[in-house]
Computed example of a mutant assay.
Amino acid sequence: MTIAEKILQRINRPELLRILADELTPSELNTVLLEVFDRQTARLSAPELLKQYQKNRFVKPADLAVMALRGLETRLLQIFETFRFQPIELSPVAPLGSCSVVATADQKKILSALRGTEVLADATNALALHVADLKKNGRWQPVSPTDQLRFSTIHRHVRTPEVTIPGHSQHFKIACLISSGRDTGSFQFERESLAEHLAVMTAILRDSLQISTLRFRLIRRSEDEDGRLLEQVSNHIRQLRPDLVLETDRTPSHENRYYKGLQYKVLLTVRGQEIEIGDGGFVDWTQQLLENKKERFLITGLGIEFLARLQP
């Protein structure tokens, strides 16, 4: 029995959850919940509001040097634009289910909201929806089959699992890149798009921020059964960028259902400790959204707040 079911059992309303979830339309449910929250806030006093602020782990400001962080953000956005990744400012909310419907995220890890929304928990999911919308309504028309959509953003994310690592918080900024295209055979999209993402990460971390310990690890995932994707992508990048430190992992120690075929990690060594500062890979979100198996989508996330803390 879930916690919610136990609560409803205690108040002798065991059918309430089923009624709310199954018998009300989203609009009707929203109306009911708006009334519930309106009544709850009407009972709140100002001192009680302060007490809620003091004990709520989601609402405190970030413990960072703001001007330094803003400067780093501007620096990154300029580099993104240089590499033809168009910067975009996302809404602080996304449609309800943006992560859990197309990816492996549990909705309980997302801060769900009213009016059919959730607080943004992963900007790359929101960018996938934006891309799918552009393609669905015809606002983006490729000139050639190999044309790609490239977007970048820096956004504050909120996730609900309690944070136990010192220096981490419930909300944090991530710099994100996405590339969207179509399958044209021979892993062309995969080879070219991943090489571009690695080039951007190298321009930021090694060339701009002067971090000499940068390296990348390409990890084969279950959809790449024969390892051809990993082999072709890694060979392409090594030929194109022999200056990069590139590792490959053909037999990862654990399964990952989030990425499809290939995942990669952005690694640094700081004071003798390995730090995973970024992560990315291929996902099938636009395939699901557009119901088209030819769709291809690559995402990258860079921990900009953690990166800011590493800067002198």
Rank of each mutant, 00 (worst) to 15 (best):
V101T: 12
L20T: 05
A123H: 02
R296T: 04
R159I: 01
G301P: 08
L194M: 13
P161H: 03
T2I: 01
I7P: 00
V270I: 13
T153A: 09
I110Q: 09
P161L: 01
L177K: 05
L177W: 02
Q210L: 03
C176Q: 10
T82P: 00
L218T: 11
T160C: 04
A21K: 10
S234A: 15
E192T: 10
G227A: 12
K173S: 14
P26D: 13
I219F: 05
L218G: 06
Y264V: 06
A121V: 01
E89C: 11
E225S: 10
V158G: 08
V158E: 11
E192L: 07
G71T: 03
S212T: 14
L198I: 09
S112P: 01
L289G: 05
E190T: 05
E23T: 13
E192K: 09
L298R: 05
Q263K: 12
R84G: 04
R250W: 12
F80Y: 12
P252N: 14
L20H: 02
S152A: 13
M1I: 08
I154K: 00
S91I: 02
G301C: 11
R182C: 07
T124Y: 00
G185M: 06
Y264M: 03
E162T: 15
K265V: 07
N125A: 12
P166L: 14
W285D: 02
I275N: 08
A103E: 03
T124Q: 03
Q188T: 12
R139I: 07
T251I: 06
G116A: 12
K108V: 01
C176D: 15
Y259D: 09
E223G: 03
E190K: 03
R159S: 10
H236R: 05
F216H: 13
F216K: 07
R228W: 03
L76H: 04
A195F: 00
C99E: 09
Q40H: 06
I174G: 10
L298Q: 05
R191Q: 15
E89Y: 04
D106P: 00
Q78M: 04
F297K: 09
V245P: 01
A103V: 00
P145A: 09
S98E: 08
F37Y: 15
G280Q: 07
K6W: 00
G97L: 02
H155G: 05
K294D: 14
D22N: 11
E255A: 13
G71F: 01
T2P: 00
Q287P: 02
R156F: 00
S169W: 06
T124E: 02
L149H: 03
G278Q: 03
T164N: 13
V66A: 12
A46R: 14
L268V: 08
R250M: 04
L240Q: 12
S193N: 10
P166Y: 13
E276A: 14
P142E: 06
R182P: 02
T31N: 11
M67T: 12
E162K: 15
R39I: 06
L76I: 13
L29R: 13
F172S: 12
P145S: 09
L214N: 05
L214A: 04
L72S: 05
T213V: 03
P61R: 15
E162Q: 15
R250S: 15
K293S: 12
P47K: 08
T202R: 13
R39K: 12
T153F: 01
Q288F: 00
K173D: 14
P242R: 04
E274S: 11
I88H: 09
R238L: 11
A132N: 04
L134C: 10
L267K: 14
T117W: 02
